[in-house]
Design a binder for these strands. Structure first.
Lengths: 126, 126
DNA sequence: CAGCATCCGGTTTGATACTG
DNA sequence: CAGTATCAAACCGGATGCTG
């Protein structure tokens, strides 16, 4: 057990920030958001690249999720007024502040996989 | 019950497999999961207590989410073989390792709220 | 008390076809 | 290339009633 201030402070944070947590979840927690963010966190990508790299996603969903992330100010949409249309997506500065959170999530996900001996390994039909 | 054969489920599985992040999201990312987890993060609780403390949740959902969390090994279900049935729920050790992640999410949600100057702040305390 | 079964409506998603 | 439009299916969650 930790000091009251420690554990309590942490708990208190959860209490006061259940919404903050919900907000975070709302932004990164869509069905395709993780995949999109995962890609964009590494590099800027074009619409078509994203579509190809995220296997199974439909245009409808890709656009929808992209728009949401854009609205949440975590990604940026850059349109190049060229003859063959070109649109690039990349994280905003705010988007980059997700780093620690995403890492924490990723780490815990890995830990959880270890501890539970994961079953959902990529052997799913696809 | 959800059909594993549906395209939907397949895609979801794929996402969860993409990285630990998806896995983490899948576990804490339900509609009521945050609320349940934050309650149980503080203390062990009985089914009825949870139901009462989480305002608005239906039995159907509470049980469903509880079962999922249990299956994910982050919470524990303890049944007391007493005449008036008594069932308690509490975090497992693995569940407690979520602390840093939950905090990171909470923090970022907070930061995001500041940066975007949003309004969603209806923290309903106990 | 704890929890499951069933029905039902609203929302999300996927597939497909079409446009600038 | 980068989307938009539309329809139907799947899913989610709520309300209600029933059981041990």
């Amino acid at each position: 057990m930790r000091k009251d201030t420690s554990t309590n402070a942490l708990n208190e944070k959860f209490i006061n920030d259940t919404c903050g947590m919900g907000r975070a979840l709302n932004i990164v927690g869509g069905r395709w958001k993780p995949a999109i963010l995962y890609k964009l966190y590494r590099t800027t990508m074009r619409y078509g690249e994203l579509k190809k790299s995220i296997d199974g996603i439909s245009e409808r969903m890709l656009v929808a999720q992209l728009r949401e992330l854009e609205e949440d100010k975590v990604i940026e949409r850059i349109v190049y007024p060229e003859v063959p249309p070109r649109v690039e997506y990349r994280l905003t500065d705010l988007g980059r502040t997700m780093g620690p959170m995403l890492e924490a999530m990723s780490n815990w996900g890995d830990l959880h996989r270890e501890k539970t001996g994961d079953q959902t390994k990529g052997s799913s039909n696809d």
